[in-house]
C-alpha cells in the first residue's frame, strides 16, 4: 500500500460519505444524478463479489463494505426516502444509462484477464466505473447550477482518479510484473472525462464566480 493509493482510497471514501451525509442532513439530493449513483452501486456490487471468498486485508474488506453500504444508501435515499425523493430532478436526469451498461458488459466478455464469472464481472465493473460519472456531468450541464453538493462530489472523485494513476505509476516502478492494462486504460479514460470539469471548476474557483459549464 503506497501513499498515493491510500490517499486515493481516502478521497474516494470522502466523496461518497460526504455526499451521503449531506443528503441525509439537508434531506435533499438536488443536482445529484440518480443514474450515476445507481451505476456506482452496480460497480461496487460487480467488483466486490469476492468480498467473502478472497481476503486481501482487513482494510480492504472494511473499505469494500463501506463503499457498498454508502453507495446503496444514497440510491435508497434518492428512490425511497419520502422527503429526499421529492427533490430528485427526474426530468433532467434522463441519461439512458442502459446504453452504458450493455456495452461495458459486452466489452467485459471480450476483454478480461480470465474468462471466469468473477473476472468478467470485475472487468465489467472497471469499464462501468470509467463512464459512471457521465449522467452526473450531463445533469450538471443541463441544470447549469453547480451547488457545492455536486461540485465537491465530482471534484473529490476526480482527485481520487488522479491519485490512482500516480499509484499505478509508483507500483509500476517498484513492483516487478505489475501490469494491469484493463485498469490502466479504463482509469485514464475515466480521468480524462473529469478533466474538462476540473478545468471549469478551477477557473470558477479562481475567478470566484459561480461555476458555469458551457452549454
Amino acid at each position: 500500500m503506497n501513499l498515493f493509493r491510500l490517499a486515493g482510497d481516502m478521497t474516494h471514501l470522502v466523496s461518497v460519505v460526504v455526499l451521503l451525509l449531506k443528503i441525509h442532513t439537508i434531506k435533499s439530493c438536488a443536482g445529484v444524478s440518480l443514474k450515476t449513483q445507481e451505476l456506482y452501486a452496480l460497480v461496487f456490487a460487480a467488483r466486490y463479489l469476492d468480498l467473502f471468498v478472497h481476503f486481501v486485508s482487513l482494510y480492504n474488506t472494511v473499505m469494500k463494505l463501506v463503499f457498498l453500504a454508502s453507495s446503496f444508501s444514497i440510491v435508497w435515499y434518492m428512490r425511497k426516502h419520502k422527503i429526499v425523493r421529492r427533490t430528485y430532478d427526474r426530468e433532467h436526469d434522463t441519461f439512458r444509462h442502459h446504453f452504458i451498461v450493455l456495452p461495458c458488459l459486452v466489452l467485459a466478455l471480450l476483454i478480461n484477464e480470465r474468462f471466469t464469472f468473477r473476472e468478467v464481472m470485475w472487468a465489467f465493473s472497471i469499464y462501468l466505473e470509467a463512464v459512471a460519472i457521465l449522467p452526473q456531468l450531463v445533469l450538471l450541464q443541463r441544470t447549469r447550477n453547480i451547488d457545492n453538493l455536486t461540485g465537491q462530489y465530482v471534484f473529490f472523485l476526480g482527485a481520487y482518479r488522479v491519485l490512482y494513476i500516480l499509484n499505478w505509476i509508483y507500483r509500476y516502478f517498484t513492483e516487478p510484473h505489475f501490469v494491469h492494462w484493463i485498469s490502466w486504460i479504463a482509469g485514464i479514460v475515466q480521468t480524462v472525462l473529469y478533466a474538462d470539469f476540473f478545468y471549469y471548476y478551477i477557473i470558477s474557483w479562481k475567478n470566484n464566480v459561480k461555476l458555469e459549464l458551457p452549454a
Partner: peptide
Amino acid sequence: SSELSGHDEL
C-alpha cells in the same frame, strides 16, 4: 501469491 493473482486494489 493469491494477492498477486487476485485484485488487491479497491
